[in-house]
Structures are given as C-alpha cells and as structure tokens.
Simulated scan of single mutants.
Amino acid sequence: MPTQRPPPFTQISTDAVPPSQRLDYWEAYNASVLVGLKCSSFAEGGLRATQSNVDLGVVRLAEIRGNEHVIERTPHLARMHPKDSVFASLVLESSAFFYQGKACEQVEPGELLVYDTRHAYLFGFTGNMRLLLLDMPSAWFHTHCVRDTPARPVKIHAGTGSGRVLSVALRKLLAGVMRRPAAADAASVPEEACELLRAMLLDQIGGARVSALRASHMLVARSFIDDHLHDAALCAEQVAQAAGVSLRHLNRLFAADGLTVSQVILERRLERAATDLRAPALRRYSVAEIAYRRGFASQAHFARVFRARFAMTPTQMRSASVA
C-alpha cells in the first residue's frame, strides 16, 4: 500500500511586506491560489493579514486572519480570473457584510455563508477578523452536497437545534485540519465536511428536517466516538445514549452506510492508529502503545484487525512511512 502523504500546506503574511505594497501582494497571492479579488483597507498601518491553505485534493481549505478590510470580486475580475467554485465561509471573528447580486447579508461570528464565485461579490469585515473557507469546485459540490448551486448567497444561522450541532461540528473539523494539517486525512475530510454542509443547507432551505435530524444524530455519535477512542470500554450503547436515540435506531441510521455502530468504532480506531503510526512525532511510541492509545486492549487483536484492514502489519506501515 502506498504511504499516505500529508496534504500540501502553505502560509503567507503581509507583516513582512512594506505597508504600501501589502494590498498588491495580497491580491496577487489570492489570484494565484484562491480567487481573483480587489482588497481595500483604511486601517492605520495598512492591511495586516495572514492566510494558511491546505490542499485536500478535490477541495481546498483556507484560514484567513486580518484587521478590518473589504474584498471585492468585481465583474471584471470574474472575467479575468474565472473561478467555477462554491465557497463556504465560516466567520469566526468580527461582524461582516456580504453583497452579491441584489442580496445583502449581515454576518455574525458563528454564521456560515455559502456563495457562488462565478458572480461578483463584496465581503467586508468591520474589525479584527478570522474565517475558515472551504473552496469546492461547482461540479463536485453539485454531486456531493446539493444538486443546484445557490442562486443567491445562503446564510446559515447557528443558533439552536440541529443547526448549532452541525455548525460546531464543521468548525471543529476544519479548525482541526488547520491546527494539524500534516495529520489531516485528505480523503475523509472533504466527505465529512460535505455531509455537514448538505445537512445544513437542506435544513436551511426547508423540506428536509428529517435529513437534518438524521445527520445531527449521526454527527453527535461520530463526534462522541472520536472523543472516546482511547477508552477500551467504549461501546455502542454509550454512543447511542450520547446521541439521544436508541441503539436500534442508531444502527438503523448507520445501516445506510452499510455499517453498525460497533463497526464504526473499530474503523475509526484503525484509521487513527494508522495516522499515529505514520506520524514522525509519534515514533517514540511502540506499536503496543499506539494500540493502547486508540483503545485496543489486546495487541494480538489489534495486529489481526489492522492487517485485515490495511493489508500490512502495523510495523510494516510504520517502516514504509519512515522509508
């Protein structure tokens, strides 16, 4: 099996650039890696901003921090720098305003904005800002999230109910990638993010409350599993109780993916153990310690199920990653 390589990661900052050149620098960088835009800032000292990017293959993730500023994708820039993507921007800090077409949205921290980059827009931040941005090709978004591109920007509130659960989970997922990009699973992160976005969008536009509720139950269950993988006593009944449903109902929800709760627990333990074995920072731990960290009480059982899952032993995977 080929060794999994960490997703490419890049980071820039305007701090090392003379203030008079910061806007040009920021615009040129974004045109090359994200989207063509025009940036304006009236802050004393000029624009101060940083951007981190993780290439997850089919989608890209960016974390942007900065002082108050406005970005604009004008009709001219949309023609000069075409971009056929859907952006999902999760605002974490600063109030913001967003214009596209005839729509104007006021955006507060914790709210998610989904919009089409083929059309001109303006995005402004009134204070020190921070956001997580998911860049999804339109064709992929149509296939995996929702069939139609939003005709106008969609703002998703994160106040109560399933929307709050889904928003918190999306933030946790994306922020976790930015904290440890080298440990990110470039295959699973887009799928998990898409599942969350689909549930949020369907819940927002109405007519799919059952789908959103199903997604929220599964999300809570998966989150509980990931947070308790170290516990060898973790069982399906505990997961169902945390999700607020019966074990029979939770297994019925997971059955749509061809799995039971117990199989999901085992799969996540194996995935995390494989990630640990490939991580250079964890080479000081023995294979037995890795197994214990991920909730396997028996090293023999761990070795057996690991080989069945990855077609190699834990030691072989570690050796391949070192090589």
Rank of each mutant, 00 (worst) to 15 (best):
F9L: 05
T10K: 09
I12M: 07
A16E: 07
D24G: 08
W26N: 02
W26C: 04
A28R: 13
K38M: 07
V54N: 03
V58G: 10
E63R: 14
L77Q: 12
R79Y: 04
R79C: 00
M80N: 11
F87A: 06
S89Q: 08
L90K: 06
S94Q: 06
S95P: 00
Y99G: 01
Y99W: 13
E105L: 15
E108G: 00
G110D: 10
E111A: 11
R118W: 09
H119T: 13
H119K: 14
F123N: 08
F123C: 03
N128L: 02
R130K: 15
R130T: 10
L131A: 10
P137E: 05
H142E: 13
T143N: 11
C145K: 03
T149E: 08
R152D: 09
P153L: 01
K155E: 00
G159A: 08
T160R: 14
S162G: 01
L170F: 03
L174A: 06
G176S: 05
V177H: 10
V177S: 02
V177I: 06
R180E: 15
V189D: 02
P190C: 11
M200G: 03
L202S: 04
D203W: 05
Q204G: 01
I205Q: 14
A212H: 03
A233R: 14
C235D: 15
C235G: 13
A242V: 02
A255E: 11
L259K: 15
I265E: 08
E267Q: 15
R268P: 01
L270E: 03
E271D: 12
A273I: 03
A273R: 12
A274Y: 03
L277E: 03
R278G: 07
A281W: 11
A297E: 14
M317N: 05
R318M: 07
S319C: 07
V322N: 08
A323R: 12
